[in-house]
């Protein structure tokens, strides 16, 4: 049977971000505010990274006339938000597509994440169930979101169920695969310990299973959030008459590139906000145990 931890590697990408201990250490490394010290501050390096991306964007703008500059994009977004008109063309619309998309996203995740989690837990607990679901989950993972987008458009027409289904179908395999790996990674020594002490099932589920699967659960959750958002946008682009994906397409069809790019920026901004505001604090709280420094006082023997 193939190893189904294929998409787990992303976890490695996050180690620095998710562990505030590392970030704190980075901040502490900086001395008084000299130029050298400034260069080593974590926030300054992050600022530099943002600057680098902005510079790359502007460079593309200068070499390619169809790509709007950041100033144009920001101006467009403000007009879109305040409801002004874009050069007499159409009145701006901002909150309605946004709230509609977020609703669909929320419903999709609210269905997909628990379903995927349950499937993953079952897959992790039983080899039989793993055989049963493994290939299906792998195919679901491999199937590009755009195929779901097209199918959803054909099945549900332009209703809200297409985008929701796409989010569900993207979230399920990511949760399933990661939780299944998480259950199997639980230290067998701890399981033996619990059995030998006769720890009741309920407490074992809460303390051992939940604690042990949290890291992989978070990886799955993050991937589900990220890819779910992506599928939602694709479905809305091709098969919806509302939502942020549709709005981006609308400006694309109207050949208003600043508007279209502004919405793409918004996609990125939104998922970043969700990540920072929702997932990061949750993760930080869940992994508190991993972040305390080791005791420094001598062991009293």
């Amino acid at each position: 049977m193939s190893d189904i931890r294929a998409y787990e590697g992303l976890a490695g990408l996050r180690t620095d971000e998710a562990r505030p201990a590392a970030a704190r250490a980075a901040g502490a490394a900086a001395g008084p505010l000299t130029l050298r010290g400034l260069l080593r501050r974590a926030w300054f390096i992050r600022l530099l990274a943002v600057g680098l991306l902005v510079f790359i964007w502007q460079w593309v703008t200068w070499t390619n006339t169809r790509v709007p500059g950041i100033d144009e994009i920001v101006r467009f977004m403000i007009t879109e938000m305040t409801g002004g008109s874009h050069g007499g063309q159409l009145t701006g619309e901002f909150w309605e597509p946004l709230s509609l998309s977020l609703q669909r996203y929320g419903i999709g995740l609210a269905i997909g994440v628990p379903v995927g989690a349950v499937v993953g837990l079952i897959m992790g607990a039983s080899r039989w169930a793993r055989g049963l679901f493994n290939d299906t989950v792998l195919v679901l993972l491999a199937l590009p979101a755009v195929v779901w987008a097209f199918l959803a458009a054909l099945w549900f027409g332009l209703s809200a169920w297409g985008p929701i289904l796409a989010v569900v179908l993207t979230a399920v395999p990511f949760m399933a695969i990661n939780l299944s790996a998480g259950v199997r990674d639980i230290d067998q020594g701890l399981v033996q310990m619990s059995r030998s002490f006769g720890v009741p099932l309920g407490r074992r589920l809460y303390h051992l299973l939940l604690g042990g699967t949290l890291p992989s659960g978070f990886t799955g959750l993050r991937l589900a959030f990220m890819t779910g958002w992506n599928s939602l946008l694709i479905v809305e682009w091709f098969g919806a008459t509302s939502g942020v994906g549709w709005r981006a397409r609308f400006w694309y069809d109207a050949l208003r590139y600043p508007g279209f790019v502004a919405w793409i920026f918004l996609f990125v901004l939104l998922i970043t906000v969700v990540d920072r505001v929702l997932l990061n604090p949750l993760e930080r709280r869940a992994f508190e145990w991993n972040q305390r420094p080791t005791l420094t006082f001598e062991e009293e023997l």
């Binding site: 996050r14 620095d16 990125v268």
Partner: peptide
């Protein structure tokens, strides 16, 4: 460089591919 590039690479990973 690790700190600088980490944020850039993480950003790229979190951008929806459709963008």
């Amino acid at each position: 460089w690790r700190r600088l590039l980490n944020s850039v690479l993480l950003f790229i990973v979190s951008v929806p591919t459709v963008s």
